[in-house]
């Protein structure tokens, strides 16, 4: 798989990451290198091998349905840029 500059630009846009021209060139090259490595891995024969969902061979533990958290709004909102009437304020969003 090859990756183009345009792909990186699109990914940056989707990830809301600002990249300048120089960084885009550099990032395109680095990611192309990673994909080249992946291409090597793809060459391995995986027929009959079930894909792993997670790199460790462990199973998720679950917790009982109990409320354990208390209200800490004041602490959380103390570090928020803008709050009002208990709400976090953000620039206006329109659907």
């Amino acid at each position: 798989m090859t990756i183009e500059r345009a792909d990186i630009e699109k990914l940056a846009e989707l990830a809301r990451i600002e990249l300048n021209d120089a960084t885009i060139t550099e990032t395109t090259r680095s990611i192309a290198d990673v994909l080249a490595l992946v291409d090597q891995l793809q060459a391995a024969n995986t027929e009959g091998v079930t894909p792993m969902a997670h790199p460790t061979d462990a199973v998720q533990r679950l917790r009982p349905d109990v409320v354990t958290e208390t209200n800490q709004r004041e602490a959380f909102q103390a570090i928020a840029p803008a709050v009002e009437e208990g709400l976090y304020l953000v620039p206006k969003v329109i659907d």
């Binding site: 803008a82 009002e84 009437e85 208990g86 709400l87 304020l89 953000v90 206006k92 969003v93």
Partner: peptide, 11 residues
């Protein structure tokens, strides 16, 4: 009505 044109978020 607060007029600051921002959106409030309740999580």
């Amino acid at each position: 009505i607060h007029g600051h044109g921002m959106t409030g978020i309740d999580l």
